[in-house]
């Protein structure tokens, strides 16, 4: 019984960081299964990868990450199709605009469902398989936005902070089973998610983010800020007392 090497699932691979990571991993020889809601966009990414790598296009699996009940069966099908699995990366994320006077439960709920609950549905499956196999890598894209509750985006901050806690707990849970769990916390990355938000500090391209993320996936055992300078910045920001933080307007 031999499992195929270097097989990975990327959830949220139709655009942004997910698509950029998919391109990069395919170039490094990974066999990929790409999951996302929009079939056409997903097919484009797969075709693009096939063109660039001169290999068979990655299989695509159209799926809405809020269709939680469908995840176990789909996960099994993908793993059986791949014939093995070493890595699962969850990148699906949304960040709808929230106005300064807006208190909108529908948007908050959507963010929690896509960013957090979808991730829990997928990564629990991965955790279950990897703990039985005694190895594997699980990763999720959280964000620097998860490190503090900011006035601009309560729902987004919550979903990203909760992602980081969930990933930390998985990491602790699976450490004895030789499974690595990597939390990626990007700063602003130029993707459809940040489009139209104007000039953001230390913004990097999706390709640059993907380069750093793929490197981290190969070796990290913990939380990785992308780019690294955010580790220093967020260390400071995390330690600003609340009473000052709320007056700072950041």
């Amino acid at each position: 019984m031999k499992l195929k090497k270097k097989c990975a699932i990327i959830v949220g691979a139709s655009s942004g960081i997910g698509a950029a990571v998919a391109r990069r991993m395919a170039r490094e020889g990974w066999t990929l299964a790409l999951v996302a809601r929009r079939e056409e966009a997903l097919a484009d990414v797969a075709a693009d990868i096939a063109r660039r790598t001169n290999r068979e296009a990655p299989r695509i699996y159209p799926h809405d990450v809020t269709d939680f009940d469908a995840v176990p069966a789909l996960f099994d099908r993908i793993v059986a199709d791949l014939g093995g699995l070493e890595l699962v990366l969850y990148t699906s994320g949304i960040m709808p605009d929230v106005g300064p006077e807006e208190f909108n439960f529908a948007k908050d709920r959507q963010m929690v469902e896509v960013n957090l609950l979808g991730m829990m549905a997928w990564l629990n499956e991965a955790a279950h398989l990897f703990s039985r196999l005694g190895g594997g890598t699980i990763a999720g894209i959280s964000s620097v936005a998860g490190d503090r509750g900011r006035r601009d985006r309560p729902g987004y901050n919550t979903s990203k902070g909760a992602q980081a806690i969930f990933l930390e707990a998985l990491r602790n849970r699976l450490a004895s089973r030789n499974v690595r769990v990597v939390t990626i916390k990007p700063g602003p990355v130029a993707t459809p998610l940040t489009e139209g938000l104007g000039n953001m500090p230390f913004m990097i391209s999706a390709n640059e983010a993907a380069r750093q993320i793929v490197r981290a996936l190969g070796k990290s055992h913990g939380t990785v800020y992308v780019p690294l300078r955010w580790a220093a910045i967020m260390t400071v920001i995390r330690h600003i007392p609340s009473i000052i933080f709320r007056r700072m307007g950041i």
């Binding site: 031999k2 499992l3 196999l133 005694g134 190895g135």
Partner: peptide, 17 residues
Amino acid sequence: PRHWARVEGWGMAVSAL
């Protein structure tokens, strides 16, 4: 896949899929 498992001998020095 739901049944794939690397099963170890108790001493952890040998295992099998």
